[in-house]
Design a binder for these strands. Structure first.
Lengths: 183, 183
DNA sequence: TTTATTTTTTGACAATTGTCAAAGAGTATT
DNA sequence: AATACTCTTTGACAATTGTCAAAAAATAAA
């Protein structure tokens, strides 16, 4: 979901109240916001730049999620369960990031229950997006998934290595290269 | 997520307050709780039986989700967006179903904001489950996905046609048959 | 039980995708 | 510009998965 549309969900006065709690941080390309094997309790909002989540499997890394301007990213396997994460969160460009401790966010919701609703609306959106991605794997071939990505998130192509895009689509870099050759 | 564990999330007094709003309905096998092309604003909690969501693609039907006792199911592409759904929701056994209008649930949360928190917790769980399923497609082969299903939801095997399980795993029935032959 | 219907398996073959090694192209560094 | 380094493409081949048709097995209906 895109938080440039946050105003479409959270009333601006509330949104700014949350945002004022956060401090914007800048990090260089390749910086790791979170490392695998540790517990992650932060959610990151990308203000500028691109961030990916990845996972090592048999030496190779597989990109699980990619977030650009206005989007959220975190080690989802840890932030809710508070278990050690298998994911690493890495910057693909010099980026400006807003970090939110989910624990603090939960306290905030405890104090001001009217925030709960907006968190619910955000989770509804995220859940819907997840369902769409599952659908992609069920219904579409590698080529169709790539074509869909071009349509829905064309800006990623110029900014993210094809190897990362390939694993994000569930295919190898070589296969993606061949898909791109035969349009 | 399993609503037999609902008590682990929603305090029992609140949960029963919600549940008392609902009336349990029984339907025979093959009954459709929801038909594609219409708007779905209900969420179904399976008390007894098995329910699947499926989608037609080029004549074949692809199972998107399967819910058994204690689990939730709905046409997720419609219930939040209120767009016409591409999914049909079908009973695979004679079942007992609790139906909740999501619109009514939203009014309930409007009136009693303390419900918001529990809805958020439910959505957190559902979102995490969705993320796990995406991971399955990124990291695991068809055989590994099948082995995982046997481990995590063994009861589905005796109760759901292998054709439905195959499409749920993103493969054809023939491939699943061969996978099962070579353990 | 017998017949009909549905579900599952199997075979032969095709299409897709993966693997490994190497070449080519693009960027950054000296 | 020359070198090193990273990213992308290509080729040859293997493995996985899909397609279509038919048989076998299981289940439901008469």
């Amino acid at each position: 979901m895109n938080f440039n549309n946050l105003s479409g969900i959270v009333p601006l006065d509330l949104a700014s109240e949350i945002l004022s709690l956060l401090e914007k941080q800048k990090f260089p390309k390749n910086h790791l916001l979170h490392k695998q094997g540790t517990i992650c309790n932060h959610i990151y909002l990308v203000e500028k730049g691109i961030v990916r989540t990845f996972f090592y499997k048999e030496g190779k890394d597989i990109t699980v999620h990619i977030a650009s301007e206005g989007e959220l990213i975190t080690a989802i396997d840890s932030v809710i369960s508070l278990k050690k994460s298998r994911y690493t969160v890495e910057l693909l460009e010099d980026s400006e990031i807003l970090a939110i401790s989910y624990i603090e966010l939960q306290s905030l919701m405890e104090k001001h229950p009217h925030y709960e609703k907006y968190m619910r609306l955000i989770l509804e959106q995220l859940y819907t997006e997840g369902a769409d991605r599952i659908e992609e794997f069920l219904f579409y071939s590698a080529k169709e998934r790539y074509d869909n990505l071009i349509k829905t998130r064309p800006h990623l192509l110029n900014r993210v290595n094809l190897g990362h895009i390939a694993s994000y689509l569930g295919i190898t870099q070589e296969t993606l290269s061949r898909i791109r050759k035969h349009p």
